[in-house]
Nucleic acid binder design. Structure first.
Length: 460
RNA sequence: GGCCCCAUCAUCUAAUGGUUAGGAUUCCAGAUUUUCAUUCUGGCCAUACGAGUUCGAAUCUCGUUGGGGUCACCA
């Protein structure tokens, strides 16, 4: 059985990069009828945040990811870590170190001055004497002193680390007894039965340390997949100052979760020339062994294109539901189908769509100056008046085509081009020179409102 | 700086050692549209550099350059 996990630290929200690794872990687990677990890495109490886990679950819910089992909080597993640290102590694979922070700092400074790599000097590794008075010990694990550690990575291949270059007897429990990251990650992943660790490649250099823990405890080592980072336009790791990194902001901005997931799954992974992936297709096709080795740049244009695609292909009922979040209530609107059909083709986001709906439904408060200059001439008034007359004399105007016929008749009657009536009418209806088809707009707002808007322009 | 990773159009990516290096997004042009958008058609644009292996290299090897990550009693 394949067991994957998502293990964020509680930062208060779900990061877009986090969502990607969560998605990939989720896909791989589900594809194999395995389990996808969620664990909150909150061993650092100084930044613990209860609401953070909730924020992650909320974001998961929005995009449709679901974890299995209960959420594990590392802060509530302290006894477990203590137990395993004690096991290592008992078996002589770890030891207490009484070195003070000041001594450690001094050692590091000294080493740096000598242009050496700062590392612990193993002074308490084989210590048997009496410990110094009044000093709380940290627990250090005995790391190998020589040789190499190879990470077998499904994305990067075999990565070999020379022990002398990167390791020392690192701390697994602080002086206050709380465990440290590399220790708890390994313990938890092992205890939770995680078989496939899919995470950002910023963790690659931590992996040898975790392997040391796995081996000391006799746990089987999982498969690793270190997926490349998402970069910003400067080529750096995506961070808060790049704008939208909180997943829930995408909801605010009017993105469909399907579009966001589709976008993320294509970053560093592909299946031939296919661009559009439904959740079902991702589930069927995704394999972490196919992930690219190189980092990718986060570009919004493609996300916008995908989002537009999903909006176009969303049924109107569903669209109606989604638009409520953006303040648009259409359930009882009798021309709702015409309205949505017209606008879903022209919106990149739901926010845009909501704005466009309001532009149609709400009478223009003002007329765009440039538009008036360009499209509202002296002759326009007479044309608009004729059109208004024709509307009043027409019965049973419902569909866009009904209005279109009226426009055609006026154009023929006055022997003018469509633009002669189109431009002023557009200004009257929308207050500007762009927008959906005029016949559609009129069908949506109805004859009375159309006449009122023409009237308003003529009085302007 | 040490260690590790990475390198195909601007961007996301495809290409059993043999393709006119393909697709998508962006951009540009044309068509459709009363307008804008959509849609359709077309166009511009890439194997970082240098050696080597090979009949043949984007692909394998080495080097150079460039970029990124990581080096805590943070996670």
């Amino acid at each position: 059985m394949i067991v994957t996990r998502f293990a964020p630290s509680p930062t208060g929200y779900l990061h877009i990069g986090g969502l990607r690794t969560a998605l990939l872990s989720y896909l791989w687990a589900r594809r194999n009828n395995g389990k996808f677990l969620l664990r909150i890495e909150d061993t650092d109490f100084s930044r613990n945040d209860e609401a953070a886990a909730l924020a992650i679950v909320e974001a998961f819910k929005w995009v449709g990811l679901e974890h299995d089992g209960t959420i594990e909080y590392q802060s509530s597993r302290l006894a477990i870590y203590q137990e395993y640290a004690q096991k290592l102590l008992d078996s002589g694979k770890a030891y207490k170190c009484y070195m003070s922070r000041e001594e450690l700092d001094a050692l590091r400074e000294e080493q740096s001055a000598r242009k050496e790599r700062p590392k612990y000097d193993n002074r308490y590794r084989d210590f048997t004497g009496t410990p110094p008075e009044g000093r709380e010990a940290v627990i250090r694990i005995k790391a190998p002193l020589e040789g190499s550690i190879t990470v077998h990575d499904g994305v990067k291949g075999d990565v070999v680390f020379n022990v002398a270059d990167i390791l020392d007897d690192f701390i697994i429990a602080r002086a206050d007894g709380t465990p440290t990251y590399n220790f708890v990650v390994a313990v938890d992943d092992a205890l939770m039965g995680v078989t496939d660790v899919i995470r950002g490649d910023d963790h690659l250099s931590n992996t040898p340390k975790q392997i040391v823990v796995y081996e000391a405890l006799g746990f089987p080592i999982p498969r690793f997949f270190h997926v490349p980072m998402i970069h910003n336009h400067e080529g750096k790791k995506l961070s808060k100052r790049d704008g939208a990194t909180d997943v829930m902001m995408y909801k605010e901005m009017g993105y469909a979760p399907e579009a966001l997931l589709n976008f993320l799954v294509r970053l560093g992974w592909s299946h031939g020339d296919q661009e559009i992936f439904s959740m079902a297709e991702m589930l069927e096709l995704f394999d972490p062994n196919d992930i690219n080795r190189s980092a990718s740049v986060y570009n919004v244009e493609k996300l916008d294109w995908l989002n537009a695609h999903y909006i176009k292909n969303t049924p109107n009922d569903k669209l109606c539901e989604l638009l409520e979040f953006h303040g648009v209530m259409l359930v009882s609107h009798d021309k709702r189908e015409i309205l949505l059909d017209a606008l879903k083709e022209r919106s990149k986001t739901l926010v845009e769509m909501a704005a466009q709906i309001n532009e149609i439904l709400v009478r223009p408060a003002a007329f765009d100056e440039a538009a008036l200059k360009k499209g509202y001439k002296e002759e326009s008034k007479a044309i608009l008046m004729s059109f208004a007359e024709a509307l009043k004399n027409s019965a049973e105007l419902h569909l866009p085509s009904d209005y279109h016929h009226v426009m055609e008749s006026i154009v023929a009657q006055l022997e003018i081009g469509f633009g002669k009536i189109g431009q002023p009418l557009r200004i009257a209806l929308m207050g500007k020179l762009s927008g959906p088809g005029l016949d559609t707009v009129m069908a949506i707002i109805g004859v009375d409102e159309t006449l009122a808007r023409i009237e308003a322009l003529l009085k302007h």
